[in-house]
Amino acid sequence: MKVIFLKDVKGKGKKGEIKNVADGYANNFLFKQGLAIEATPANLKALE
């Protein structure tokens, strides 16, 4: 799953980066902790 990092995550990505991560990692950790959002077309456009 492609995500946009909202904060730096050690060993995974930095704020503003768009990366592929495992679905479970994104859903169970990144999204719940507010560290990333899904890289949907709307979210990508808002990032610009």
Rank of each mutant, 00 (worst) to 15 (best):
10 K>W: 13
43 N>G: 05
38 E>S: 08
32 K>F: 08
45 K>A: 10
9 V>M: 06
16 G>M: 06
3 V>W: 01
27 N>Y: 14
40 T>G: 05
22 A>G: 12
24 G>R: 14
45 K>Q: 11
32 K>V: 14
25 Y>E: 09
10 K>F: 14
42 A>E: 14
16 G>A: 04
5 F>Y: 07
43 N>S: 08
26 A>P: 04
22 A>D: 15
10 K>I: 14
42 A>Y: 07
28 N>S: 12
34 G>F: 09
36 A>T: 00
10 K>T: 10
14 K>G: 07
3 V>R: 00
19 K>G: 08
33 Q>G: 08
31 F>K: 06
45 K>P: 05
13 G>V: 03
10 K>R: 12
7 K>I: 10
8 D>L: 05
41 P>V: 11
40 T>K: 05
23 D>H: 14
8 D>K: 04
7 K>V: 14
44 L>A: 06
22 A>W: 09
39 A>G: 05
25 Y>P: 06
34 G>P: 00
15 K>A: 12
10 K>H: 13
3 V>C: 03
7 K>Y: 12
13 G>K: 05
27 N>I: 15
19 K>P: 01
30 L>P: 02
30 L>K: 01
46 A>S: 09
18 I>W: 02
40 T>Q: 04
32 K>Y: 07
5 F>R: 00
29 F>S: 06
1 M>H: 03
13 G>R: 00
19 K>R: 11
35 L>P: 00
27 N>E: 14
32 K>H: 09
38 E>G: 04
45 K>V: 11
43 N>W: 02
28 N>D: 14
3 V>K: 00
48 E>L: 14
48 E>I: 13
12 K>C: 14
35 L>H: 05
23 D>G: 13
48 E>W: 09
33 Q>F: 15
4 I>N: 02
31 F>M: 06
19 K>H: 10
30 L>T: 01
38 E>M: 10
30 L>G: 01
37 I>R: 04
37 I>C: 08
22 A>P: 15
34 G>A: 06
35 L>W: 12
32 K>Q: 11
44 L>W: 03
36 A>N: 00
17 E>P: 00
37 I>V: 12
17 E>T: 06
12 K>Y: 14
8 D>M: 04
14 K>H: 11
36 A>L: 01
23 D>M: 15
13 G>I: 05
7 K>N: 10
31 F>T: 05
33 Q>S: 09
27 N>V: 15
17 E>N: 04
46 A>V: 10
45 K>C: 13
18 I>S: 02
4 I>Q: 03
